Simulated scan of single mutants.
Amino acid sequence: MRRLWGMGVGAGVLAGALLLGACGDPGSGGETRAAAPVPKRPGPADAGQSGADRPDARSPAPSSTSATRHRKAPKVLYLGDSLAMENQDVLGAQLKDGLGARYRSAPYSGTTLCDYLDGTGKDSLVPDRHKAAALVRAERPDYVVLQFWGNAWGYTPCMDGITYDKAREKYFDRYAADARALVGQINSAAGADRPRIVWVLQGPDPITPDRVRRVNGLYQAQARASNGLVADAGRAVAPASARYTWAEKLPCTAYETKNPAYCTEPGRGRTALHRGDDYLHFCLAPTTAKSRPCPVRSPGIRRMAAAITRAVADGSAS
Rank of each mutant, 00 (worst) to 15 (best):
V237N: 00
P295N: 15
V144A: 12
V126P: 01
A231F: 01
G267A: 13
D232S: 12
R180P: 04
K122F: 05
T112C: 08
T245V: 12
G110P: 01
G119S: 14
L99F: 14
Y78V: 12
G43M: 04
A261H: 09
I207S: 00
G98N: 14
P293D: 10
W199Q: 05
S124N: 06
P299V: 06
K166M: 12
Y143A: 02
Q49E: 13
A35D: 02
A181Y: 04
R58V: 15
S109D: 05
L201C: 11
I207Q: 00
P157W: 13
A307P: 04
M7C: 15
Y108L: 06
L113G: 05
R194Y: 02
G43L: 06
W5C: 03
A11W: 15
A272I: 01
E31M: 10
T271I: 05
A247C: 10
C158V: 14
C252P: 06
A179F: 04
S82W: 00
L18Y: 01
F172C: 11
T288R: 14
H281C: 00
P295F: 10
L229K: 05
Y255S: 06
C114R: 03
G121F: 12
L95C: 07
Q222G: 08
D115M: 05
R303A: 04
H130A: 11
P62I: 10
V198Y: 03
G51H: 07
G228E: 03
T287Y: 00
G121D: 15
T309E: 14
P299W: 00
F172P: 07
A61V: 09
E248R: 13
R2P: 00
R292Q: 11
G300E: 00
V212L: 10
P37D: 06
A247D: 01
L4S: 12
G10C: 06
D277L: 04
G234E: 05
S316D: 13
V230G: 05
C294D: 02
A52D: 13
P293V: 14
N87W: 07
Y171R: 04
A167Q: 11
R71Y: 09
D278F: 00
Q220I: 04
W153Y: 08
R41L: 14
G16P: 04
G191L: 14
G43A: 14
D97I: 01
